[in-house]
């Protein structure tokens, strides 16, 4: 089962939930957690597991073959991203701007722009006991997270069976990277906090999930800080609330040091138990 952990806005506890749920769940069965928040992957700070594999990830970009080029200029004219330009008698390709659409390469009358691999990030695979952890990290300066997210999904599919519990820590927001990250999920957990910001952003995230036809539920973090409009809203719209996590300075302190909190703060375990129970029941229902 694929479970995506997402949130409307950043800083609501996505990393906290993903790392704690993965580690706690793996005490009972095999779990793989994948950090596909590729612009800001932080799960590794909390899971100190032995590394078993590391691979570079690539996208394909055109490479200029000056011996074939006739300097006709068509490549810079077809590129909608300003990723390739002609300067006098030279063609320059801007790796980070290229979206790998292949138009310049395949339309080049002189076949002077063959596509070659270009590194966009790194995927690292860690493993200990029942817990596997896969992290993808975008190179600084690379602008497109989507190809790396898609490749990471493929890596997980190649290495883990469908029956494996698969958790995905997704990017925040509601834009393309989130859609790419959640589109293969069987269930999406949206984590939020009951403040006006949290509520506003999670409602946008819920709309997005609706449009994508994804089943989803909420986890409410720092549940006792805000106004409880959110609970009433979920009830009225029959949106399941999987669990609530209280506001607790000890949680924040453990998190600040890069520790898993369920060992330190007793209130966290029952919340994780509720989430696991819900997801297991959901999986049985799906079958």
């Amino acid at each position: 089962m694929k479970i995506a952990i997402a949130s409307g806005k950043g800083g609501t506890g996505k990393t906290l939930l993903a790392t704690n749920l993965a580690s706690y769940w793996s005490e009972r069965q095999s779990v793989v957690l994948t950090d596909i928040d590729v612009e800001e992957p932080n799960d590794a700070l909390f899971l100190q597991l032995p590394k078993i594999a590391q691979e570079e990830r690539f996208k394909f970009i055109p490479s200029w073959d000056s011996t074939r080029c006739t300097l006709c200029g068509q490549c810079q004219e077809v590129c909608n991203y300003h990723a390739i330009i002609q300067l006098g008698t030279e063609i320059m390709v801007f790796d980070e701007l290229c979206h790998s659409c292949y138009a310049c390469s395949e339309l080049c009358p002189a076949k002077a722009l063959p596509m070659v691999p270009h590194k966009i990030g790194e995927l690292t695979h860690y493993h200990h006991a029942n817990l596997s952890f896969v992290e993808s990290r975008l190179e600084i300066g690379e602008e497109q997270a989507v190809p790396l997210i898609a490749q990471t999904h493929r890596y997980v599919d190649d290495h883990f069976s469908k029956d494996h519990v698969q958790l995905f820590d997704c990017p925040p927001g509601t834009s393309c990277p989130v859609i790419e990250a959640t589109k293969h999920a069987d269930f999406v957990i949206l984590i939020t906090e009951p403040t006006p910001f949290g509520e506003h952003d999670v409602k946008l995230a819920m709309q997005t999930m609706h449009q994508m036809n994804k089943p989803f539920g909420l986890v409410i973090n720092r549940a006792d800080v805000g106004n409880s409009d959110l609970l009433a809203y979920c009830k009225a719209n029959t949106i399941p609330v999987l669990a609530t996590i209280p506001f607790d300075r000890h949680i924040a302190e453990a998190y600040a040091q890069g520790l898993l909190v369920y060992e330190q703060v007793p209130a966290v375990k029952p919340a994780l138990d509720q989430i696991i129970d819900f997801l297991q029941a959901f999986a049985i229902n799906q079958k």
Partner: peptide, 17 residues
């Protein structure tokens, strides 16, 4: 930023820009 490991990590990444 905030006094957490993630906060420091992301501060360093964004300051590079």
């Amino acid at each position: 930023t905030e006094s957490t490991l993630s906060g420091l990590h992301d501060l360093q990444r964004v300051y590079a820009l």
